[in-house]
Design a protein around this nucleic acid. Structure first.
Lengths: 114, 114
DNA sequence: TGCGTATATTCGAATATACGAATATACTTG
DNA sequence: CAAGTATATTCGTATATTCGAATATACGCA
């Protein structure tokens, strides 16, 4: 069972492991939204947004309901927004290391990309 | 700044997005450990464990101190353990869907692997 | 200095993820 | 039923991750 729990946590973290999906979850934490609104608010390509939403659906992070033409997305559980809040605090608590970490990640990207 | 925060959160989630790294964090939540103990307790190959530890170091999830021959790992902030606790509760709150999600992920793996 | 133990890094192959372009599906309205 | 809008899926390519095997580095002790 412990193994299952760890796999579950890892799957959830993977679901959230992308800035776009974080942005989606943050938007949904405020209120339910149809997919199109998310595209607009977050400035995403339609296909790209839909793919990220598919990931969140597969991992059960969001639920959907259809209303006519549109599909409304909602956070399945507010604890997920709560976790994002904890991480915001964590970020500021360790501000300088956090920024440094991001810089290092960016450099690593650049090195790979060239 | 919001962008930076989202990138930060995504990086952290990526750091945690593996069952082995979850297991490491859970072990360190109890107490600081040298790398070798982690290998033993978790039954990991030395190289594999070291690679996972490198990920956690890069994302600043853990800190290290050397004592003679050994390198002790510790969780940098208990809030990370707290988050794992929230996810445990989340898992049980949505038990049947959670298990179903894991099954679907397993099937997807099997489909890809064959 | 040289050997032994603890840990980290590099390499290569297999697999997974991300993106945009194109296409498909589902619903609404005329 | 046809045309239009909202959303999802598929495909191809670029990039990232994971693992074990092999190798490298750091420290302690004789």
């Amino acid at each position: 069972m412990d193994d299952m729990l760890r796999r579950f946590k890892a799957e959830l973290f993977r679901a959230l492991a992308h800035p776009t999906r974080i942005a989606i979850v943050e938007a949904l934490a405020v209120s339910e939204q149809p997919a199109g609104s998310l595209n607009l608010i977050l400035g995403l390509e339609q296909a790209n947004a839909s793919q990220h939403l598919a990931v969140l659906r597969a991992k059960q992070v969001v639920s959907t309901r259809r209303s006519g033409n549109q599909i409304y997305y909602a956070l399945r559980d507010p604890v997920l927004a709560e976790i994002l809040g904890l991480l915001r605090a964590y970020f500021y608590t360790h501000l300088s290391e956090s920024i440094e970490m991001l810089d290092v990640m960016k450099e690593a990207d650049a090195a790979t990309g060239s």
